[in-house]
Write a protein that binds this DNA or RNA. Structure first.
Length: 204
DNA sequence: GACAAGATTAGCT
DNA sequence: GCTAATCTTGTCT
């Protein structure tokens, strides 16, 4: 896995919308036990503490969201609906409560291991086409909260080996009751692993 | 302390 | 397409 190098801190210190878009096509490298799992990011959503009521970091710092206010490149993992985890990458400088939710990835290697983690799932697409599904497949849980993706530890993010061209589609975010009018969701056009949703059609 | 709600998913109709 | 599952977190008392 020498070919993958973590993106530098600078990548994450930029505007959150830019980071959310540019994370598309990047590679997540997850080391768990003696296994290495890799997957390509195909769908993201931006959450902006300052003006976004849907963000956990809206207006104030709490015990749960404090990591979102840390420096860009940190990982924010939260537990939801009694069962599931969601995986975010913090962006911008320390003191700004912004992050990008990773909503879907495309498995590249370690697929057999991912199937084991997603016990009972055999379809490749079902493995990682959802924010909590990919957490299970990549063995992401709250123990990764606060980790840093700019060094090669348990998990990091790299440029792809070969740069490929793709079109980015923008839409409203999914699964929210508030703040749903912001066009803060980004995904790779025609990628199989992007979550199925009516918004996909409207925009295309 | 107690309580309601949630950035979802799987399973059933 | 609809709903239950399930428990942490934040807010209020």
């Amino acid at each position: 896995m020498e070919k993958y190098k973590p993106l530098s801190r600078k990548f994450y210190l930029r505007d959150t919308i830019t980071v959310s878009k540019e994370l598309l096509g990047k590679i997540i490298i997850r080391k768990t036990g003696n296994k290495t799992l890799t997957a390509k990011i195909v769908e993201t959503e931006a959450y902006i503490g300052e003006h976004d009521p849907a963000s956990h970091s809206y207006m104030k710092i709490t015990e749960r969201n404090k990591i979102m206010y840390d420096i860009g490149g940190k990982i924010y993992v939260y537990f939801i609906y009694g069962k599931y985890f969601c995986f975010n990458i913090v962006s911008e400088r320390k003191g700004i409560g912004n992050a990008t939710l990773i909503r879907a990835v495309e498995p590249l290697s370690g697929i057999e291991e991912m199937k084991k983690l997603r016990s009972g799932i055999n379809s490749d697409v079902e493995l990682t086409n959802g924010p909590s599904k990919l957490c299970i497949a990549l063995d992401i849980d709250k123990s990764l909260n606060g980790e840093d993706v700019t060094n090669e530890a348990k998990i990091y993010i790299s440029k792809p080996v070969k740069k490929e061209k793709f079109e980015i589609i923008t839409s409203k975010r999914i699964g929210l009751n508030i703040g749903k009018d912001f066009q803060y969701r980004f995904f790779i056009k025609n990628n199989l692993y992007v979550t199925k949703h009516k918004f996909n059609k409207v925009i295309q």
